[in-house]
Design a protein around this nucleic acid. Sequence first.
RNA 1: GGCGACUUGGCCGAGUGGUUAGGCAGCGGAUUGCAAAUCCGUCUACAGCAGUUCGAAUCUGCUAGUCGCCUCCA
Length: 529
Amino acid sequence: MTHPASQLRVYNTLSKTKEPFQPIAPPAVGIYLCGPTVYAESHIGHMVGPVIFDTVKRYLRYCGYDVTWVVNITDVDDKLINKSKERGIPVSQIATEMTADYLANLRELGVNQIDYMPRATDHMTHIIEFIEQLIEKDHAYEVDGDVFFDVVKDPNYGQLSNRNLDDQQGEGGGAAAKKRSAGDFALWKSAKPGEISWDSPWGAGRPGWHIECSAMSHQILGDTFDIHGGGLDLLFPHHENELAQSGCCHDAPMVKYWMHNGLMRAPAKGKVGGKSDRESETADDIADADQAAAGKISRSKGDGGLSSLIRRHTGTRIRFFLLRTHYRSTIVYSEEGLEEAGTALDGFYRLFDRCEEISGRSFYDDSDLNPARTRSEGDFDPGDDQLLQQAQQLREKFLTAMDDDFNSGLAISTLFDWLRLLNRFIDENALAAGADVDSPSVVSLVSALRTLKELTNVLGLFVKPPIAGGGDDDSQALLDKTIHLLIDLRKEARERKDYATGDAIRDRLGELGVSLLDKKEGTSWELTS
RNA sequence: GGCGACUUGGCCGAGUGGUUAGGCAGCGGAUUGCAAAUCCGUCUACAGCAGUUCGAAUCUGCUAGUCGCCUCCA
């Protein structure tokens, strides 16, 4: 049997091509993703990378790899220090608050595959050692308590972002006067009076931006690891500098595959949450409203951005919205896009409800369906069962899509084929609530669902049931019983051919945002989104 | 100035040489007491120009437009 994972191809920013994925030491795979600087609440743009790499890890695990995924938390830097002065509270307190916000958002979006979340302030010893080694190897130099990386000493500098230092416009930043050349960047920054600092061989100070990622990824994942991810905006200077530091320090390539995700942008303006807040003549109210919803403007207005977005749209919807676009593409944020994602998801939720009524098994409960956890485990012989033959074909389509550089958008399009296939199967076989669960058609249906569940688990979708409309479990149950009472009354009215009363019940529920779905297996209800 | 990405139908969005992407919206039909849901069918495309080729949305060149990075933004 061929090793299925060998078909996976990954676009490597370093080579600018899709390469066959061959880990350094299979089955182990190490992934490092640049995480947030926790100085403010997250916006939706911060979730793009985590959702993508959560899916990447899920797929690699599914392909049989033993994946370690690291996402760092930058809890000390200039922005945090400025924020601390502004608010008059310690850096550590801001970091703690904003880390909690970040983690809560990740949870809502189903990002739960992270193995390590190292914080820069917990790794000062390793960071300082790293810098010392670079100085010893003559790749770095100290000036008045600051330490800089000497880019000229690294002939490969610029290889990742394809840059020639001579062509750059930058002035070298605030410490330009101390640097040997403008492209040199800080490894260690001396502390100004009153600033948070750590002792070092060069005096009190704090790490530069890039060094923590090099130090922490090295500590957890080693000299060379498999995948380093991040947004395209980090390609230069951040990743270029990490690559240079680590490579020079360990005399080995830092990373085998560099993966960069596209950025999210607001309509008619720059990227969501970006620093370049240039004005656009065409900027209209809609774009402003969208940006507010995306978290950019709301941040300055003090109105919770991402968490209110999640409350409005649910985490699943946002995750689905993000995964429908290829990870290397720009995603244009829009309310309509999110709404549409919700409409699309509703179709799946209805299907899963139908299936549960027929089979008695919940699609959201892994133990009910017991889907395969790995790719090879999921291979099956459909025999002459037509439904399962089609299921197998759809599974192949899905895997082929994911094998091609994690084409989650194409993979999701096959989910709609499942939607149609299973609805049609239920219609054609007239399956209804209370069906004989041992009958051949129900057995086939459950088998097919098991495979579908296996695939949706890879995407991290439909892990939890949809939220019907706030409230705790008790009030949910009461609501459901109350509406079913009305459904029963309507049913009695319709049986007497009193359609006026029946329709009145339906219409008035509709006004409240509750729509009734009459199906062969009975009437159910849902909230109109 | 340097480096890079992008431009697909009303909207979103796959697709690197020939075969239906898909979704949302629309339209027609089946079903329904009427609806909703579901199923079946269906219309709007590849920024422009030139070239390569038997054949290009897909390769090449030019033009136009959009966007990102160029020292600390995921």
